[in-house]
Design a protein around this nucleic acid. Structure first.
Length: 963
RNA sequence: GCCGAAGUGGCGGAAUUGGUAGACGCGCUGGAUUCAAAAUCCAGUGUCUUCGCGGGCGUGUGGGUUCGAGUCCCACCUUCGGCACCA
């Protein structure tokens, strides 16, 4: 019968209609028909990588949410940009290609086609004309172009400027040519780092330096630079990884292979230059650059905190300690340490160096370890084997420390070896022993610390174990802790029998810090300092499936920039060289691209060697939101007008797993582009929303083998095998291919309907929460839509819309519009849908739905269940496919004065009755009427006085009586 | 250890941000329809007490503020997420 709700037919019809009509095509400023008066709204999803497994029902949760929001905004009259694309370069895609032995180019194309079809099946209103893939040449030539901008820029930390709103900002990316010019003009002198690079030629003027020397100096400033540093080398993947890509237990985030620390020459992004601005702009008012109000980041607090922790800014001081020669006790060198507690300097009774520190690891010009143990060296200080010589003890300790995995360090048992030499405490002249211990790491601060056992838990443990003196210099706490790390007032600084110029006795911690730093600075023994946990971003990968660098190596030994595009050569053998041996050197796959590709003739005929590394998977996703704005521009990464019109992204929806990686990298690139004048906002994503995961129960048989969710039958909450009837073990957790508990959306969509699936995913709970999938619950949403259908279409298939709404129906309509609007605006779709269900239930059983009600109902339902809403709209004779652009209903200003409302009455906290009153009754009249009511009076004793009479408008009358 | 978020029926979760706790859905119980089942519809469903009307108790635990607390404050317990020898 035509009266049936045939969702498959309806959904197919509208899915096709939207694609054919390009219903969701968005006009940019350069397009015909663009309306500059319309406000814009940019709604972005974190784009997927084209996984071969395709999407399961857990994936689209965020996409459905952003689609509802986009459709809602569109109906409200916004020019909505809602695009989709694919993050197709990088490790995930390449690993899939390797595992399935298919070329990544083919994998990418096939998987993109499959996932696009899935997204379209879900009725998501994307502008498919803006689709991008990060691995397409049209796209990655601009990724290379942006890299080239980073390569050709440096960060001037002292440059002071103001943004469009007059906010002062310190530090800015500037073209590297400016730096070279100021060197050439003699306006800039060589820094100590420059001198190290220039070795013997520190007095040579810039213009007399060789190109090699000039380039070596500039490399030290570029935002994308090359350096040999200790990196995370993952032989199992055959590539280095960023710190962010290594898990806590020392494994690769992709593939879970062991990761080793090895020194290798890499391309690196100077993200640390932006540490302060990346931190500040999490909270600061941000310029929009187009005469609009500044905005602040509307991000989940947790994500902001994670970013702040990752950047890890801390304030303190650098202090210089004299290191003494082991034999003569003359000054050997000056050792710089970083501390957040300079006020505890008088309590520094020993020092600790990281095992890789140049003072204690040979070969090094700094090496200061004596041949033999100094006389009377404590047995405990000599390492595992007291018979070893000091140098071999230190060497074996270093090796042992290098082998330690993160799991070993969990134990935190402090170990260390005496270095054989001493240092001098600058404030009291005390000679203190220097130890080597792996609780100090080379990559934070200077790889050396002053140890204050009385006020630092770690130093305390170490001192206890090795019998080192503990001197209290801060008074505070409850006095019972032997190690107090809190604030207090300084004592013994200096102590009675050891006078000193650095007296801070009696000062509170913060003042003591300030004063001693000042005193140290005056004597050239230290200064204020800031430290960050954030490390520079290692940017090269020894892989095939990524953006080639637009660079080549000049035979003289410096790098030259090549104009993009640098096309990734087609290679059948794309596999990386992997191994189990962390010390085996490997060549990147592009080495095998052949001589013809590898070498390149420069303008002057010199033959340069192309860079063989490729960029990491994050490169493409660092700026894709900009390309969506102007995806077909072949003269710029993004047109200026389009960028100014659409940026920033108003709503960015994605998983919390990108809290630091992608979001930090993208913010960094965006800030560089902002400094260089290519984009108009200092931050790319105004509002960020992390949708929760959909979890699922997994079922295992008695052998522990996962059973496909389709084979599981549920009875009384227990799982049973559909065929064998065997009882299965049920565990809650992630949805995924390996647990066999993820269904493809098509399967659910075909059985229950896409609208049902959409509603159900949004109805399961708050969008940000992780909630379990259950097939039992989805029926409820199907019933809802079937009831909607029956309310509008009778058994014969005729539309049941007629008549006028009653006053009560209008009141309900008014309330429902308010609720649904509010809930969608705040992304609380579960409650929005509940309101729709509630309203629909009120309409059940009526022979005809008033037109006014029907129209509003369908408009409200449309963002959430668009197929059925469009179909009913059309059948009601109100047009074809226009619902997506129809104005969102606006609730009336308020109820009419003559309308009545019912207020509950409470006396001393107890409900005592109800009163029906006109909406516009005055409080006096209401009071008189309430107090006249029989069932209210009987709860107010004769002797009592009315202490308060409170009316919460529209809510409740509250009477408080007392004696 | 440090930082953060959260604890509400049998279950997922509402509660307009201090105003009738448990919306809506699932499940369950009873009924209608049916030869029967599915589907659908109607009624009920926090808990104790009562034949019933009604009443008592109820938002992790213990205190507090308030006429009024799931919501605010203090302490504790539990769970989840992040960081982790960061000097």
């Amino acid at each position: 019968m035509s009266g049936q709700y045939n969702f498959q037919e309806i959904e197919e019809k509208w899915r096709t209609f939207w694609l054919d009509q390009k219903t969701f095509r968005t006009q940019g400023p350069e397009d015909e028909g663009f309306d500059p008066e319309k406000p814009k709204c940019y709604v972005l999803d974190m784009f997927p990588y084209p996984s071969g497994a395709g999407l399961h029902i857990g994936h689209p949760k965020g996409y459905i949410a952003s689609d509802i929001y986009s459709r809602f905004k569109r109906m409200q009259g916004f020019n909505v940009l809602h695009p989709m694309g694919f993050d197709s370069f990088g490790l995930p895609t390449e690993q899939y290609a390797i595992e399935h032995n298919i070329h990544p180019a083919i994998v990418t194309e096939d998987n993109i086609n499959a996932i696009r079809a899935q997204l379209q099946f879900l009725g998501l209103g994307y502008d498919w004309d803006r689709e991008i893939a990060t691995s397409s040449e049209e796209y990655y030539r601009w990724t290379q172009w942006i890299f080239a901008r980073l390569y050709a820029s440096y960060f001037d930390a002292d440059h002071e400027w103001t943004d469009a709103n007059g906010r002062p900002i310190k530090g800015k990316a500037l073209p590297i040519t400016k730096l070279a010019e100021s060197f050439a003009a003699g306006k800039r002198t060589y820094s100590s780092e420059d001198c190290r690079v220039l070795a013997g030629d520190v007095d040579t003027p810039w213009n007399d330096l060789s190109t090699v020397q000039q380039q070596a100096v500039l490399n030290g400033y570029r935002l994308a630079y090359q350096d040999e540093i200790v990196v995370n080398w993952c032989p199992g993947l055959g590539t280095v990884l960023a710190n962010e890509e290594v898990t806590n237990d020392g494994k690769s985030e992709r593939g879970n292979f062991p990761v080793y620390k090895r020194p290798l020459k890499q391309w690196i992004m100077r993200i640390t230059a932006y540490a302060d601005r990346l931190l500040e702009d999490l909270e600061a008012p941000l310029a929009q650059g187009n005469d609009q109000e500044p905005f602040t980041l509307d991000w989940p607090v947790a994500i902001k905190l994670m970013q702040a922790n990752w950047i890890g800014r801390s304030e303190g001081a650098e202090v210089l300690f004299d290191v003494l020669k082991s034999d003569t006790n003359d000054v050997h060198s000056s050792l710089r340490v970083y501390t957040t507690r300079p006020d505890t300097l008088f309590g520094a009774t020993f020092m600790v160096l990281a095992p890789q520190h140049p003072l204690v690891s040979s070969p090094s010009e700094m090496y200061n370890v004596p041949e033999t143990w100094p006389a009377e060296t404590d047995e405990r200080w000599r390492g595992n084997d007291p018979q070893q010589t000091i140098r071999s003890a230190l060497e074996s300790y270093g090796e042992q420390a290098a082998q330690k995995t993160a799991a070993d360090r969990e134990e935190r048992e402090k170990t260390g070896v005496f270095s054989g030499f001493y240092a001098r405490n600058p404030v009291n002249g005390a000679t203190i022993p220097v130890f080597v211990a792996d609780y100090v790491s080379m990559d934070y601060g200077s790889g050396a610390i002053m140890a204050v056992p009385a006020h630092d838990e770690r130093d305390f443990e170490f001192a206890e174990k090795y019998g080192l003196p503990i001197v209290d210099v801060v008074e505070g706490g409850d006095g019972r802790d032997r190690c107090y790390s809190g604030q207090g007032s300084s004592i013994n600084s200096p102590s009675e029998n050891a006078p000193s110029d650095f007296d801070i006795n009696g000062l509170a911690t913060s003042e003591a810090k300030a004063k001693i730093t000042e005193l140290l600075e005056a004597k050239g023994l230290g200064k204020k300092a800031v430290n960050y946990k954030l490390r520079d971003w290692i940017f090269s990968r020894q892989r095939y499936w990524g953006e080639p660098f637009p660079l080549a190596a000049h035979p003289d030994g410096y790098t030259v920039a090549i104009d993009p595009p640098v096309v990734l050569p087609e290679m059948d053998d794309f596999r990386p060289e992997t191994s189990d041996d962390p010390d085996r050197p490997v060549q990147p796959p592009l080495y095998r691209a052949g001589e013809a590709w590898r070498s390149l003739a420069l303008e002057d005929g010199t033959i340069a060697e192309r860079e063989l590394n490729v960029m990491p998977q994050w490169a493409g996703s660092c700026w894709y939101y900009l390309r969506f704005i102007d995806p077909n521009n072949d003269s710029a990464f993004c047109g200026e007008h389009a960028e100014q019109y659409f940026m920033p992204v108003d709503l960015y929806v994605g998983g919390a797993e990108h809290a630091v990686l992608h979001l930090l990298y993208a913010r960094f690139w965006h800030k560089v582009l902002y400094d260089l004048g290519f984009v108009s906002t200092p931050e790319p994503f105004k509002k960020l929303f992390n949708q929760g995961m959909i979890t699922a129960d997994a079922f295992q048989d008695e052998r522990g083998v996962y059973v496909d969710i389709r084979q599981v039958e549920l009875r009384d909450g227990e799982g049973y095998h559909r065929e064998s009837g065997a009882r299965l073990v049920r565990t809650a957790g992630k949805m995924g291919k390996r647990y066999k508990n993820g269904l493809p959306p098509e399967e659910v969509g075909e059985e229950f309907g896409v609208d049902t699936l959409r509603l159900y995913e949004m109805y399961m709970g708050p969008l940000e929460a992780s909630t379990p999938w259950s097939m039992e619950g989805i029926r409820g949403m199907q019933r809802f839509l079937q009831r909607v259908w029956r309310n509008f279409i009778d058994i014969e298939g005729a539309v049941k819309i007629a008549g006028e709404a009653t006053g009560d129906q209008r009141k309900q309509m008014h309330q429902t519009i308010l609720r649904v609007t509010d809930h969608i605006e705040h992304l609380r779709f579960n409650t929005a849908i509940a309101a729709m269900i509630e309203w629909n239930n009120q309409l059940v059983g009526t022979d005809s739905i008033p037109a006014e009600i029907a129209e509003t109902f369908l408009a409200l339902l449309n963002p959430m269940a668009p197929h059925i809403a469009e179909e009913l709209w059309q059948r009601a004779g109100w047009g074809e496919g226009v619902l997506a652009h129809r104005a969102w209903p606006i609730a009336d200003e308020g109820l009419a004065a003559e309308d009545t409302i019912t207020l509950p009455i409470q006396v001393n906290g107890k409900m005592r009755g109800q009163i029906e009153t006109p909406v516009d009754i005055s409080e006096e009249d209401l009071k008189t009427r309430v107090l006249a009511m029989e069932n209210v009076r009987k709860f107010i004793p004769e002797s009592a006085v009315i202490k308060r009479f409170i009316v919460v408008p529209g809510r409740i009358v509250n009477i408080v009586v007392g004696n």
